[in-house]
Design a protein around this nucleic acid. Sequence first.
DNA 1: TTAATTTCAGATAAATTACTCTTAAATAAA
DNA 2: TTTATTTAAGAGTAATTTATCTGAAATTAA
Lengths: 145, 145
Amino acid sequence: MSLLFSRQCEYALQAVLYLAKMPPGSMTSIKEMAAKLDIPYHYLAKILQSLTYKGLLRSLKGRAGGFALRLPVEQITLLQVIDAVDGSAIKNTCVMGFGECSEENPCALHDEWVRLRTGLFDVLIDKNVIQLAKEMKKPVYEVLT
Amino acid sequence: MSLLFSRQCEYALQAVLYLAKMPPGSMTSIKEMAAKLDIPYHYLAKILQSLTYKGLLRSLKGRAGGFALRLPVEQITLLQVIDAVDGSAIKNTCVMGFGECSEENPCALHDEWVRLRTGLFDVLIDKNVIQLAKEMKKPVYEVLT
DNA sequence: TTAATTTCAGATAAATTACTCTTAAATAAA
DNA sequence: TTTATTTAAGAGTAATTTATCTGAAATTAA
């Protein structure tokens, strides 16, 4: 089961952080990312296409083609990615599944969930992708020379 | 999209809290819960059957039959319900979807996610269902006279 | 110009999750 | 004992999500 984010969104987050670590101006291919991140090739292709369509990435066909972040890394947050893929559900969906859930009409976990979610969002918004990518110690993200 | 918990788990949580507010000893029918909580009847039936099989509820067939919590409300936590329905995925799954994710090999959101998850678990474990049910102001949970 | 590489686009397939239907079995009331 | 009500169980259907396949279009290098 995917958790908090859809599978598609998880892949998108991984890919965007991967691109964030690449030298600015360079293009990275689906092939490379699919291999490094262990994501099904064609599925990743769809996701990257969609992110391109939504303005987060730019793409180039042909020999030296691939994908890159549309904007400088300082201007991209993971929340933008989540928004683009999963929409705003995470921002206002009741964690217990009730249709309506608010301060006036809270579920048993409402207050706690709002508190925790807000903390997560602070990170998703305040830290740009390059900061996050740097904190991550995953070998697959090591920059190639 | 469901969020954090599967749909099935959300329904289970709603139903268990509903039962927690019922007078001890009384049985509540699927019919009543499905109507009050707006959950598909047969689907809820399956979920309650499963919770019964797993020892969280007891059931009684026939005229005055229905479901009730197997143990006193003081001894039931929502984490037990989550465990029974969604398993332990939430306890150790990486929020970014990486296969391996730990202190030594963390994803970009690892620390933040651990913090959030721990905070949530504190509530899910420390507060028993009757406390949670009482804090919840949802009209559907008002005890009938 | 030709060939190789890469994204683009659309259709399709597989897997998972959510939901429905039907019949049987148990229980209690009439 | 009969009938109404309720859970039990299994099969079946629908919807959604995830993943695959194929061929076209663009770009670059030879």
